[in-house]
């Protein structure tokens, strides 16, 4: 694929990956506490992109930690537009992708939502309940506005479908590390390295694994196969416990150090 067709998110991640770096993409819930400051802190600590959650009332792909973060943010009165205008008022050294559920996009309208993302400096979208089957229209509208829409590949995804998802995904391909919802796990599931391996076999796009990647050791383990990791619940738990930007900085630094040591 010619380089100029790459969106901002994919371009940034591909260049870093090709430069020999493992990729680290933390997730944080928009609207939760000092979230903007936290984003700056995790970028400072070595994040290669940041996934910002736009809270939805019915997050069926999320476990208790991200559910609670979303609920707290919603109880505090946060709205999708409020999150996007905060993002617009700030500038960040790495690409920002938003993660939300499809009704938020559907309600705004594809065109309006894509433009709002673009105007806010967002360069990627992740919508877990909008995949290949229903995603065509949004993927196109997003692309027209310079937004890379990331598709997911799960351990249960068939080989034929996995290839199609990897082809249609933009930005990177999100390998779901286990059959389950987001949340911390005591050990890395075997399925995490397996999905990474399957994806690496069929795409040259960056392959990141998320869901159930909870600490530096697990991040290192899966990044030996994948191009990097997405870490959400483990970070958000620290924020829910009142950790603030400083604890986010420390945690992400630890992950960074871990995956940088992979040879």
């Amino acid at each position: 694929m010619a380089n100029q067709t790459l969106g901002m998110l994919e371009k940034a991640l591909t260049e870093k990956r090709d430069g020999g770096r493992k990729l680290l993409v933390p997730y944080i819930s928009g609207g939760l506490g000092d979230w903007i400051e936290t984003i700056h802190a995790i970028i400072e600590a070595g994040a290669d992109a940041v996934e910002v959650g736009i809270p939805f009332s019915d997050p069926i792909m999320d476990g208790p930690i991200i559910q609670e973060a979303s609920q707290r943010a919603l109880d505090g009165g946060i709205t999708p537009s409020a999150i996007l205008s905060e993002l617009r008022r700030n500038s960040f050294a790495v690409p920002i992708a938003v993660m939300t559920y499809y009704n938020i996009v559907h309600h705004a309208g594809h065109k309006r939502f894509a433009r709002e993302l673009a105007n806010s400096g967002v360069s990627g979208s992740i919508i877990p309940d909008l995949q290949l089957d229903e995603g065509g229209d949004w993927i196109m509208m997003a692309a027209e506005n310079g937004i890379d829409n990331v598709l997911l590949a799960a351990p249960s995804t068939s080989p034929e479908r996995l290839t199609r998802s990897a082809v249609s995904s933009r930005g990177f391909v999100y390998g779901v590390g286990l059959m389950g919802v987001t949340g911390e796990r005591a050990s890395l599931a075997d399925s995490a390295s397996e999905i990474a391996h399957r994806l690496k076999e069929c795409t040259t796009r960056p392959v990141l694994v998320g869901v159930g990647v909870s600490n530096a050791e697990q991040a290192v383990q899966v990044s030996r196969v994948s191009d990097g990791v997405i870490v959400g619940s483990a970070l958000v738990r620290r924020l829910l416990q009142g950790g603030g930007p400083q604890s986010a900085f420390e945690f992400i630094s630890e992950l960074r150090k871990g995956i940088d040591a992979i040879i």
């Binding site: 499809y102 309940d129 995949q131 089957d133 229903e134 799960a154 249960s156 995804t157 479908r161 059959m179």
Partner: peptide, 20 residues
């Protein structure tokens, strides 16, 4: 075939559930 009654219906679930 995509599960639509007129414009309504469809299959909006996480990837993990699509094969099921």
């Amino acid at each position: 075939s995509s599960g639509r009654f007129g414009e309504f219906g469809g299959r909006f679930v996480p990837e993990s559930l699509i094969p099921a």
